[in-house]
């Protein structure tokens, strides 16, 4: 009797597992489908695309679309492919991520370890910054950039992204640093270390989990940004997202789906790369501090 029952429950468990995995695989396929279509389409020739069906594999693999997207496709008036814009993006995303992360870390450090009169109010105001939509800051920002004389420049775009990102990066670091005991800083002060030395020698070495989170977040946000890119840059200096839009929307001639797809993948590749490299730290960092030890 007991035996039978046990085998029954074991059987039920196996079935449960199988169903679970089947469902998970189904969902995974569902989410991977667009990527699959993009990838296969980018590798097809135009004839192949017209003749075949959407999810069929390419009859013959061709990288022409990729080459064209990178070096000779027309985005609006200029026909140099996405390569220039790709490097544009790299050239402002990297500094913007680095600067906003560093300032965020310093802010978090001050807000937790060197509290001052009104620091809580300051933090609350910063938090509100997280909820301000892009659109709201466009006009004031344009004016500010004008005053500063950095409108339409890479510096200007970096500035915009740093300012907009600070609310988030500060929030990340502040919430991470509250779990670090203040006594660590007190001990270091008695040991004779100053503000920056403590940050550099004690606090920053404890920060890799949150640094990863912050960098991934900021990189994704800034790389994928379209609105600031389209408003605060023009022509040659446009980021890849804007160029991609122009490429896809260029209405002259035939619609080259394979080139569009290749271009879209090129535009998305860096964020994908960042996730693959640092993704496992991302989850760890997001939950770090929530559990003690």
């Amino acid at each position: 009797m007991v035996e039978v029952q046990r085998t029954e429950t074991a059987g039920a468990r196996v079935i449960g597992r199988v169903m679970l995995y089947a469902l998970l695989i189904l969902f995974a396929l569902y989410y991977l489908m667009p990527l699959f279509v993009m990838l296969t389409t980018s590798l097809k020739t135009l004839d192949d695309i017209r003749g075949g069906n959407l999810i069929a594999l390419p009859e013959q693999v061709s990288f022409d679309a990729w080459i064209k997207a990178w070096s000779s496709a027309c985005t609006g008036v200029n026909c140099g492919g996405l390569s220039g814009n790709f490097w544009n993006s790299v050239s402002f995303v990297l500094p913007a991520v680095a600067i906003s992360t560093l300032i965020g870390a310093l802010n978090g450090y001050v807000l937790t370890m060197w509290r001052f009169r009104g620091s809580d109010v300051f933090f609350t105001l910063l938090l509100i910054g997280c909820f301000i939509p892009f659109q709201v800051v466009l006009l004031p920002m344009a004016q500010t950039l004008g005053w500063l004389g950095i409108a339409n420049s890479t510096t200007g775009l970096i500035f915009v992204h740093v300012v907009y990102g600070l609310a988030f990066t500060t929030l990340f670091f502040r919430n991470f640093y509250v779990s670090i005991p203040e006594e660590l800083v007190k001990a270091a002060r008695i040991d004779g270390a100053g503000f920056f030395r403590i940050f550099w020698r004690i606090i920053l070495p404890l920060s890799p989990p949150i640094l990863v989170v912050c960098v991934i977040w900021q990189f994704t946000q800034i790389w994928n940004d379209f609105l600031f890119g389209v408003v605060f840059s023009s022509g040659e200096r446009q980021p890849i997202t804007v160029a991609l839009n122009n490429l896809v929307n260029t209405s002259t001639g035939v619609k080259e789906y394979n080139v569009d797809m290749a271009a879209a993948i090129i535009a998305g590749l860096p964020t994908l790369f960042v996730y693959v490299v640092a993704g496992k730290y991302f989850v760890r960092g997001l939950t770090a501090g929530s559990v003690k030890g």
Partner: peptide, 13 residues
Amino acid sequence: IAMVFQSYALYPN
């Protein structure tokens, strides 16, 4: 002066 804290406050890194 030197101080010893209840939580020890050793530098973890």
